[in-house]
Design a protein around this nucleic acid. Structure first.
Lengths: 152, 152
DNA sequence: CCATATGATTAACTATGCTTAACTAATTAG
DNA sequence: CTAATTAGTTAAGCATAGTTAATCATATGG
């Protein structure tokens, strides 16, 4: 159960602290914005590049029927636009509207609010240390194998 | 909109990368486990120390009626136990069961799976750098003002 | 003791999110 | 041209999650 790698263990501790602080903000934002978690998930998927109804279903782990129904609501709320693909008219192309983009941005910002408080109490040398480590992580994250999209 | 502080900006980038990778895992776990997001939120709250029905409602941003109904289901699923407070018999004390603890642990682990891949491609010096930075963050996080629980 | 306040539950109702099954329209294969 | 496949939608039905309003039991203040 306990990870053997001390760095994994440290990440584990950090995640616990991090989740404890950000989850609450996240839920409260979700409530205030009127967006449900599945809807936020859909915004994320489309932001990530998913652009058809059935792919959205795969990304969210639901049937395409469910995806279609959820989309219908989100289109009505003007979070997403759904247009016909001229190449294959059976397919619907999905895009975030300006409102959809803004909503997604706000969910991210909601989780970051307390990070600002955390950053504000770091000394200059600590800031530099954290900055370098994060940049390392960001750089390396791009090298990690993508979640194989068609793997089931 | 764009944060002036470069460390905040770096955190922002890291969060975007991090969210992109972990949100999907999280949703899939939620599906597989049969736990809904509000239920996971409830487990988190109780793990955090919330131990009465109305406080849980406040923590989740819902009415105590809704909290009571959700608890009833979760008690039936043996995720939570609900006992009478002998001090004040109107109050119900809430605790996670062994099963509840395990479920919560798994939600955290689901988000960490890709972190293991990330850690595995770090060099020794990078590992040390990240380890030190995380320990700094963990230590400082405890000094940040708690989310004022009764602030509305 | 009685009135009031508090914590939790229940009832009635609504919306969302999901499923399966049936259907429509468009594409592709023969 | 027809048959089969694919993308998406619609319908029926169910569970979850939320609301407000009413109720019950326990505490508390006079």
């Amino acid at each position: 159960m306990q990870p053997a790698d001390p760095l994994i263990a440290t990440f584990h501790t950090w995640m616990e602290v991090f989740m404890r602080r950000s989850t609450e903000d996240f839920f409260h934002y979700s409530k205030k914005s009127g967006l449900s978690m599945p809807q936020i998930g859909a915004l994320f998927q489309i932001h990530k590049g998913t652009d058809s109804v059935s792919d959205l279903g795969v990304g969210l782990g639901i049937t395409s029927a469910a995806a279609s129904q959820m989309l219908e609501r989100m289109v009505q709320f003007h979070l997403i636009v759904r247009t016909e693909d001229p190449q294959d008219r059976r397919v619907k192309k999905l895009f975030l509207t300006e409102k959809g983009h803004r909503a997604l941005q706000e969910t991210i910002e909601a989780r970051e609010r307390w990070l600002e408080d955390l950053v504000s109490i770091l000394s200059d040398s600590e800031r530099e240390q954290v900055m370098m480590a994060l940049n390392t992580l960001i750089e390396k994250a791009n090298l990690v194998k993508q979640n194989t999209p068609q793997a089931n």
